[in-house]
């Protein structure tokens, strides 16, 4: 059998359109995931604050312990039973964001806890409150350590976003499948889709490397 990429070339507009939806949904989920992750990660620093700790810990356990696809379906197909009808795109962003947030929270917590205890003690000993010390001394240092694992998480998020094609969202996966349903050229179209994801994740890797280099040059990292 011969490879025939003509359906990919004739459908490239749709694929690019889909890729831009993938980027949009991933970027928005990323922001949501980072905000959730930061709050939950900080919430898990002090087990003495029982209620907050328990809430944050259960969130991480439930989200990490169940499939993303099930979570997305619960949002999209489950919530309407309570007359909560969210647009597919919103479900996608919330679903991916909440999912990613659980993983980001562990990155945040780990990075903060990896900062030497003496930093917090020094900050407190000049009279800073816990919050001020966290914002001005601990988080800026932890942020630098978060970047490599966050890079992994961002890349995972881009790839996981393919699942939202099942919520009728017209992302690159969905657009590809539409081409296949007409042309039956599965191999060629899926190869093209894989290439598009590869480019997107590659660009993310490059961007994060840039950011890390800049922080290094600014003396933030030894």
């Amino acid at each position: 059998m011969e490879l025939d990429f003509s359906p990919v070339f004739s459908g490239w507009r749709n694929l690019i359109q889909g890729a831009s939806v993938t980027v949009e949904i991933t970027a928005m989920a990323l922001v949501l995931g980072c905000v959730m992750g930061l709050l939950v990660g900080i919430g898990r620093l002090k087990p003495e604050r029982r209620v907050i700790y328990a809430l944050c810990t259960s969130y991480v356990a439930v989200i990490r312990g169940t499939p993303l696809l099930v979570q997305l379906f619960l949002l999209f197909f489950g919530l309407p039973q309570f007359d909560i009808l969210l647009p597919a795109f919103v479900c996608g962003v919330i679903g991916l964001g909440i999912y990613s947030g659980a993983y980001v929270s562990e990155i945040v917590r780990g990075s903060i806890q990896s900062i030497d205890r003496g930093q917090m003690e020094a900050a407190r000993s000049v009279g800073m409150s816990y919050g001020t010390a966290m914002r001005t001394i601990i988080l800026p240092q932890a942020l630098v350590r978060m970047i490599p694992p966050l890079g992994n998480e961002f890349i995972a998020l881009i790839k996981n976003s393919a699942l939202v094609s099942l919520l009728t969202i017209h992302d690159v996966m969905h657009e590809g499948q539409k081409i296949i349903s007409v042309t039956y050229r599965s191999l060629e179209v899926y190869l093209a889709i894989a290439a598009i994801y590869f480019v997107l994740t590659g660009l993310t890797t490059l961007a994060l490397r840039r950011i890390e280099q800049r922080l290094r040059a600014g003396g933030m990292v030894q």
Binding site: G118, Q119, E121, A122, S125, V126, I137, Q141
Partner: peptide
């Protein structure tokens, strides 16, 4: 604020 502390390991803020 009224009690300054100097540590064995300096604990300067590296950033």
């Amino acid at each position: 604020e009224q009690v300054g502390m100097v540590f064995q390991s300096f604990n300067l803020f590296p950033h």
